[in-house]
Simulated scan of single mutants.
Amino acid sequence: MRKNGFTLVEAIVVIAILLILGGLLTPIVSSQLQNKKIEVTEEKLKKIKKAIIGDPSVVQFGQRTDFGYVGDVGVLPDWNGNGSVDIVDLYSLVVRPPHVNPWNYDATSGLWSGWRGPYLDPTQYPDGRYESLLDGWGRDFIPEQPSGIAMRIRSYGPDGVSGTCGNDDICIDIFYDEIQAFVQGNTWDECGTGLAFSGIRVYYPRNGTILNYTVNPAGALFFTTCTTATCRTFPIGVRKIMADLNGNGVYGEASANEPNHFIVISNGPAVSLNLKRLGNCTSGSP
């Protein structure tokens, strides 16, 4: 008659079977965990890019309205304000950099600019790092600036060693055309006749301060901020453009019905527009 329980041989057989099954399942489970970490990393990279340049699909009354950090501040994240790419630059998305002004209004241009984050989840670990800026393996995302690309954000992937994007590293790129554009166009009267102008002035933010850039091709009908000599681009977002058609150095002069418009710079390389002086026909009735 057999006693209750396993014999030593049976126990050894069961243990052997479990070890074999464990050996078979371990690579599968490990692969699933790695795939999950890759998915988390890819999703975080998309969120970081959206925090930097906004979401082009967010539209109101036919115009894009979400421009992210670049739209608000006027530059890519740059924690130290030194123009070089550092690992801490992405911190600008969760904490206001010391050299960037908070969200503020500029009465001259009628524009708002400055930091109004956080643009990402600001949850912080005891070691000072931010959860939203760590990849699926708990390592810092690395910002870079390779030739021809405004910013690349890299995860070293499963092996934690720098490699090739799309192979063992996971990367996302931000292109120049996604963050800036030059401005060009024509000046007209209300009847559609071209008007010569003395200057065109564009207002835009940089580190939360509104600056302006003026084009002065006196007597021209077509204006552009990009020539063979110099090409001035402006960050995406709502900007202000004014014209001086009288040649008196006053831009957007209300008494002369000079153009004084808000414009939306959504992406590059160029934004084309027509500036119209109202109530001033030079060629008869419209």
Score class of each variant (00 low, 15 high):
residue 4 N to W: 13
residue 6 F to N: 04
residue 11 A to E: 13
residue 12 I to N: 07
residue 17 I to M: 14
residue 18 L to N: 05
residue 22 G to S: 01
residue 24 L to H: 03
residue 24 L to T: 09
residue 28 I to G: 03
residue 28 I to H: 04
residue 35 N to Q: 13
residue 37 K to P: 01
residue 38 I to Q: 06
residue 44 K to D: 04
residue 44 K to I: 06
residue 46 K to G: 05
residue 48 I to K: 05
residue 48 I to L: 05
residue 48 I to Y: 08
residue 50 K to L: 11
residue 55 D to H: 02
residue 56 P to A: 08
residue 59 V to C: 01
residue 65 T to R: 14
residue 66 D to S: 13
residue 66 D to V: 02
residue 68 G to F: 10
residue 69 Y to C: 08
residue 69 Y to D: 05
residue 70 V to H: 00
residue 74 G to M: 01
residue 75 V to W: 02
residue 79 W to S: 09
residue 82 N to R: 03
residue 82 N to T: 12
residue 82 N to K: 05
residue 85 V to G: 07
residue 86 D to T: 09
residue 86 D to K: 07
residue 98 P to K: 13
residue 101 N to K: 15
residue 102 P to D: 15
residue 107 A to T: 12
residue 111 L to C: 11
residue 112 W to D: 11
residue 113 S to V: 00
residue 121 D to E: 09
residue 121 D to K: 06
residue 122 P to Q: 10
residue 123 T to L: 10
residue 125 Y to T: 01
residue 126 P to F: 02
residue 128 G to H: 08
residue 130 Y to D: 09
residue 132 S to H: 04
residue 134 L to F: 04
residue 136 G to E: 13
residue 138 G to A: 02
residue 140 D to N: 14
residue 145 Q to W: 01
residue 149 I to Q: 05
residue 151 M to Y: 03
residue 152 R to C: 10
residue 155 S to L: 08
residue 156 Y to Q: 12
residue 156 Y to G: 01
residue 158 P to K: 09
residue 160 G to Y: 13
residue 161 V to I: 15
residue 162 S to F: 12
residue 162 S to N: 12
residue 162 S to G: 06
residue 170 I to K: 01
residue 171 C to Y: 08
residue 175 F to W: 13
residue 175 F to Y: 15
residue 184 Q to T: 13
residue 196 A to I: 03
residue 196 A to S: 14
residue 196 A to G: 15
residue 197 F to G: 03
residue 199 G to Y: 07
residue 200 I to P: 09
residue 204 Y to V: 00
residue 205 P to I: 08
residue 208 G to T: 02
residue 208 G to C: 11
residue 209 T to Y: 12
residue 211 L to N: 12
residue 211 L to W: 14
residue 213 Y to R: 07
residue 215 V to F: 11
residue 216 N to T: 15
residue 217 P to Q: 10
residue 217 P to T: 08
residue 220 A to H: 08
residue 220 A to K: 09
residue 223 F to Y: 15
residue 224 T to W: 04
residue 227 T to E: 12
residue 231 C to R: 00
residue 233 T to P: 07
residue 239 R to V: 01
residue 241 I to K: 06
residue 242 M to Q: 15
residue 249 G to A: 05
residue 252 G to T: 04
residue 253 E to G: 03
residue 259 P to K: 05
residue 260 N to T: 06
residue 260 N to Q: 11
residue 266 S to P: 00
residue 268 G to Y: 02
residue 270 A to T: 15
residue 270 A to D: 10
residue 276 K to W: 13
residue 276 K to T: 15
residue 277 R to P: 03
residue 279 G to L: 00
residue 281 C to I: 00
residue 285 S to V: 08
residue 286 P to C: 15
